[in-house]
Computed example of a mutant assay.
Amino acid sequence: MNRRPAVTAAVLCLLAATVATAAPASAGAPAPSGPPTSSAGPVAATDASVSLHGTGDTVLGSGFSTFEGDPVQFTIDARADTLKPSETTRGHFHVRHVHTDGRLVADFEGDITCLAVGGREAIATGVVTRGEAPWFPGKPVVGQKVALSVEDHGRHGDRIGWIWGFFGAPVSDCQGTVPFIRTTGGDFTVRG
């Protein structure tokens, strides 16, 4: 016995019922125009902005060799419109790394050029506009790209990761690494 015609007929009936119930109750009624409104006035249909801001402190672990135990502080303030991120991304970052003996390893800051947000994670890339890295004489810092990635865990220890273009690592807009180290202080907030 061939069941193919019966199955096909059942699928077509189900499809027809779905289309009929999805049709507007009043077929002749015009489609609404303009933004949705409430008694208080216009209501935005969607919030198309994303942001990453905050400060996070961390202490480098044994995987960082001669920098084990060094405190590093990251400050990021970035925002963008998801509809036109390349045109609307703006913000600033600052990184300060001090050796355990108190000597400055690196201190640099710059402008955010791209911001991507997914859930509670964000990647911000930018270009260093001012800075120094006395621990690495001869390494040009200004004009180099950086990538900062953050995972927001509320006030329970966020995670952060980074890539420094001045060490020859390739940095492309809104591409970064996983947030690989937990913060020990501060708080980042990712919205989007």
Rank of each mutant, 00 (worst) to 15 (best):
A116F: 05
P137Y: 01
G69T: 06
G131T: 00
P42E: 08
T113S: 09
Q144D: 13
T88A: 04
L104C: 12
I112G: 10
D101N: 13
A22F: 02
E121K: 14
F67S: 07
P71T: 12
K145L: 12
G118R: 15
D57S: 14
G138C: 05
T129Q: 13
G118E: 15
P71V: 08
W135R: 11
V127N: 03
R103G: 11
E132G: 08
G138E: 00
V59D: 04
P32V: 12
E121R: 15
P35V: 14
E132Y: 06
A106H: 14
S86D: 10
G126T: 07
P85G: 07
L104Y: 08
P36K: 02
L83A: 14
H53N: 13
I112R: 06
S49G: 13
T100N: 03
K84E: 00
I123K: 09
S33D: 15
G56W: 11
D47M: 06
H92W: 01
S86A: 15
G61D: 02
T21G: 12
E87Q: 04
G126Y: 04
W135I: 11
T46W: 10
A133Y: 00
G119V: 15
T58C: 08
A147P: 07
G143A: 02
F136I: 07
A27W: 08
R130G: 14
D70E: 01
L115Q: 01
S49L: 10
H99M: 04
G54S: 11
A78C: 02
F74P: 03
P24S: 00
L52F: 03
E68I: 02
A23Y: 09
V146Y: 14
G63H: 05
D81S: 12
Q73Y: 07
P24C: 10
D70A: 05
V117L: 14
P35G: 09
D101S: 11
A44G: 09
G63T: 02
L104M: 08
G91F: 07
I123W: 10
V127F: 04
P140Y: 07
A78G: 01
E109S: 05
P35Q: 09
T37I: 10
A48M: 05
A27H: 02
S33V: 15
A29D: 04
V19S: 08
D81N: 10
G143W: 01
S26Q: 03
E109W: 08
T21H: 13
P32H: 00
A44P: 09
G131Q: 00
L115S: 05
L148W: 07
T55Q: 04
T113K: 03
K84D: 06
L115V: 01
G41Q: 12
T88H: 07
R96M: 10
L104W: 01
S38G: 15
P32D: 13
L104K: 11
P36I: 04
D81P: 03
D77P: 11
G110A: 06
L60G: 00
T58W: 10
V117G: 13
P42G: 06
T125Y: 02
V98I: 15
V105E: 13
H94Y: 14
T66S: 06
V43E: 09
S51P: 11
A20S: 05
E121T: 15
G110T: 09
D81T: 03
